[in-house]
Design a protein around this nucleic acid. Structure first.
Lengths: 207, 207
DNA sequence: AGATGTGAATGAGTTCACAGCT
DNA sequence: AGCTGTGAACTCATTCACATCT
């Protein structure tokens, strides 16, 4: 059916993203080549884990030498699909949503905010950063016209499931959820939850 | 030295927070008693995991009966230290920081925003939600006077380590970091990273 | 009967340690 | 000599399955 993605654990995927960030920092410093050991030391990672993670996707390194910073960064970017620009639509333009609209995809090559919707009449038409707030009811049209491919949920808990379902109905296949809700997921749609309350509660535990 | 916390895996800790949220929802529905199976079905969890997680902290359930919603919620709240109110200070009152100041701890029993600091002179003195922005340079004083016990980092990547170090120097022992940076951690300080870029990159991978 | 609490079995993820390439 | 790529060992986490209690 859909084209096959290599089978990769979420934890590894997370780390690839981290490695990419580290490599970018090294590029800025002008470092062209680095060993897994050195990379691990610098950023508090594990060298064998770096090697194992990277080896999954081809022989990026050269024995006796290490990894070439820029080519590896490029391979990771393309593996993570970051060479295509993604278009975000934010559902819920309250405090958090507006801030995300201004913050996410700001000054960024891979992610760009293309639309924002809200159901509160008083917010509709407002201009937040580069987008104007459109009515939630027009979600389908807004998604189609803006060609958004990632949905961002920034509505209150009780509205989160509806926002999710509506986004999925528009054909969106990747969703970042900031609402503190356990969503009923649809197959074939990637979902990442950013749950600040859970994080705060974890911190609270250690206090 | 410091009093001993029961040894608990981060994954379990995460789930306790989830269980607590589910129980709260059940309380609202007026459900006073629930089995691990029913709880699992409702919220897409695993019943044996629920039992194992909960059993670590005492016999919360009754065989043949299940768990009492409210008492269990209370036990979890006290286990997670949520019966004390925590006081958050936000470092970096730009777009994201301001939104967090308005969003986090809003209408919440356990978390309250008590202060915000920034290093940009033009932001100082502004009133965001219930707090006024104070100078970053006065961090020590602000933390002391506001009695903040959790720090929230919402500065750009390059300023994140400095913000972290300064927070730690004030005596803060729990930090929530929104900057896309791999921080050099200090022992004895709890740190949770909320890295939206990593989340977006993960979603991108599946598109 | 019904649902917990838990050892035992399985599975996932990480680290070790070294063979093999440059 | 140096550093990757990788099987094998180990550690951590989840699921199974059932004895145990109400």
């Amino acid at each position: 059916m859909s084209s096959e993605r290599p089978d990769i654990s979420p934890l590894t995927l997370n780390r690839l993203s981290v490695y990419l960030r580290c490599l970018k920092l090294l590029e800025v410093e002008g470092i062209e080549r680095i060993s897994s050991q050195e990379l691990a030391d610098r950023f508090g990672l594990s060298s064998s884990q770096i090697r194992k993670d990277l080896a999954q996707f081809g022989d990026f390194g050269v024995r006796g030498v290490g990894y070439q910073t820029s080519p590896l960064a490029e391979r990771l970017e393309s593996l993570l699909n970051l060479d295509v620009q993604h278009r975000l639509i934010v559902v819920g333009m309250g405090n958090l949503g507006s801030a995300l609209a201004r913050y996410l995809g700001f000054n960024d090559r891979s992610f760009q905010i293309v639309a924002g919707v809200d159901s509160a009449p008083e917010r509709i038409g407002r201009k937040i950063g580069s987008v104007s707030v459109m009515p939630f009811d027009d979600l389908e049209t807004v998604v189609t016209e803006s060609q958004a491919d990632i949905g961002v949920i920034a509505v209150p808990q009780e509205a989160a499931q509806a926002a999710y379902d509506r986004l999925v109905a528009t054909g969106i296949r990747a969703i970042l959820n900031f609402a503190p809700a356990v969503l009923d997921e649809v197959d074939g749609v990637s979902l990442k939850n950013v749950d600040m309350r859970i994080h705060l509660e974890e911190l609270s535990f250690f206090l």
